[in-house]
């Protein structure tokens, strides 16, 4: 093949840059990439948990119905806060700054309630004798896996609360725009998504029969 490929010289448009590859802002792309990486982090942790659980014969199944109800309440609150975040982002897109800020703060409130419920649950399990390295029911690995997975998730929730608060306050003062709020929302939905895997595998597979 010998088609002569001629490149024509001379300045063309006013654009100084190639268009972004995925037609999204680069901040959003960073968040997406971070989410992918973080998903693998959680994945690896869940794999480690599954590996150990699989190989342990005396794996305890301590969760009572009350724990499951509590877990569902937590799910409800986290998914609801995801929803309120959507409402906030929608309002921000529509230019309704006041409403967006209100709904963002409601989201943060949801996150905080989630964290409180979580800590309350941790404390009650702690009261029942569950420790990071031992528990009264069976393999000591249970507490290690439970606390490390839910702990990492809780860290993400608290980090998300702080991040969304900061972004919302910045948005209020005009330092951030609605795109940044949307990126905060993206992260928040991801935290929600992780919880969807944590609940069945960490809680529901370990209920008392």
């Amino acid at each position: 093949m010998s088609e002569a490929h001629l490149t024509v010289g001379g300045p063309s448009g006013v654009e100084t840059q190639e268009a972004p590859a995925f037609a999204i802002s680069h901040k959003k792309l960073v968040m997406w990439l971070f989410i992918i990486s973080d998903a693998i982090t959680f994945g690896a942790l869940l794999f480690a948990y599954g590996y150990l659980r699989n190989a342990t014969t005396d794996w305890p199944r301590p969760f009572e119905t009350s724990s499951v109800i509590n877990a569902y309440a937590m799910t409800f609150i986290l998914v609801t806060s995801s929803f309120t975040m959507l409402v906030a982002v929608r309002a921000a897109r529509a230019g309704d700054k006041g409403r967006a800020i209100t709904w963002s703060f409601i989201t943060v409130l949801g996150g905080l309630i989630f964290a409180l419920l979580h800590i309350k649950e941790w404390l009650s399990l702690f009261g029942e004798g569950l420790r990071l390295f031992a528990n009264p029911w069976g393999s000591g690995l249970f507490g290690a896996a439970f606390f490390s997975i839910t702990g990492l998730h809780l860290t993400h929730v608290v980090g998300g609360c702080i991040a969304i608060t900061v972004v919302t306050l910045g948005y209020k003062r005009g330092r951030y725009d609605q795109g940044d709020l949307e990126i905060g929302g993206l992260y928040w939905h991801f935290v929600d998504l992780v919880w969807m895997f944590v609940v069945p595998f960490v809680y529901l597979l370990n209920i008392k029969h």
């Binding site: 063309s12 654009e15 100084t16 190639e18 972004p20 995925f22 680069h26 792309l29 990439l33």
Partner: peptide, 12 residues
Amino acid sequence: ITTTLDLRAKGM
């Protein structure tokens, strides 16, 4: 990754 994908010079 983001710099490579999003911040290339015009024509690159």
